[in-house]
Simulated assay, not measured.
Amino acid sequence: MISVVVPTYNEEQNIERCLESLADQTVPRETYEVIVVDGNSKDRTRELAEPLADSVFIQKSKRVGGARNDGAMAASGEVVATTDADCILPRDWVERIGRNFAEREIVQLYGTVYPIEDGVRNRLSLVGANTFSRLGYHTRTIYFTLGCNTAFDRDAFIRAGMYRCIDAGDDLEIAQRMRKLGKVYLDPDLAVGFSMRRYQQFGTIKSISEWLYIVLRGGDASSVTYSQREYK
Rank of each mutant, 00 (worst) to 15 (best):
V37N: 02
H138C: 14
D189A: 04
V215M: 09
K62L: 14
E230M: 10
H138R: 13
L135H: 06
P115M: 07
V184N: 00
S41H: 00
A81N: 09
P90S: 11
T112Y: 00
F202H: 12
M1T: 08
R154F: 04
E30F: 12
E16T: 15
A151P: 01
V34W: 05
I106P: 02
E117A: 05
C165D: 10
G219T: 10
A23G: 12
D187S: 13
K183I: 08
A49I: 07
D92M: 04
M1C: 09
D220V: 13
V34G: 09
S125V: 06
E16G: 05
T145W: 01
G119W: 07
E95C: 02
I158V: 11
Y143R: 12
D170V: 05
A175R: 00
N130H: 07
G71K: 00
L186M: 11
N130K: 08
R17L: 11
I214K: 04
K42F: 04
E16Q: 14
A221E: 00
I158F: 01
E30V: 08
R63A: 10
M178L: 15
D187P: 08
D187R: 11
D24L: 05
I15C: 11
A75K: 07
G119S: 13
I166S: 09
S3W: 01
L126H: 08
C148D: 01
R46T: 12
K183Y: 05
R44E: 15
G136S: 02
M196H: 05
S195G: 03
R68H: 10
V56N: 02
R198I: 03
A168Y: 14
R198W: 04
T204N: 10
R46S: 15
E117N: 07
N100W: 03
S227G: 13
D189P: 00
N149W: 07
S76M: 09
D220M: 13
G98L: 00
T139W: 12
F57S: 10
A102N: 15
C87D: 11
